[in-house]
């Protein structure tokens, strides 16, 4: 989708969350990954890519985003993995 990405606004950014997307930058680079979030202040897109053993995050600054294309939606397993990706490790139990 060709769009003025920084101007889309939170409701339309939210549509892209948890989807596999391809982000094209003004410099012609392409980055694919699962969209974890979009910073509503800077419009920066947070992309997660993962394999069996490793995961990495790429943030594309909002001002550099030219185009965002949705590739596919997350299945149950992937959606769960995306939810857990940036959560802190669970705090120690306070039960006696």
């Amino acid at each position: 989708m060709d769009c003025d990405w920084p101007l889309l606004g939170p409701l339309r950014w939210l549509h892209y969350v948890n989807k596999q997307v391809k982000v094209r930058t003004g410099k012609g680079d392409e980055h694919s990954g699962w969209l974890l979030s979009v910073d509503p202040v800077s419009a920066s897109a947070v992309l997660l890519t993962f394999s069996e053993t490793a995961a990495s995050v790429r943030v594309v600054m909002g001002h550099a985003v030219k185009e965002v294309e949705v590739l596919r939606e997350a299945d149950e397993v992937t959606a769960e993995r995306l939810r857990a990706a940036l959560l802190p490790p669970s705090p120690p139990s306070l039960d006696p």
Binding site: L14, L36, S37, D39, V41
Partner: peptide, 12 residues
């Protein structure tokens, strides 16, 4: 929507 997105970014 804004708060959900911002939280995700801050966690990043």
């Amino acid at each position: 929507a804004r708060s959900v997105l911002r939280e995700g970014f801050l966690r990043c």
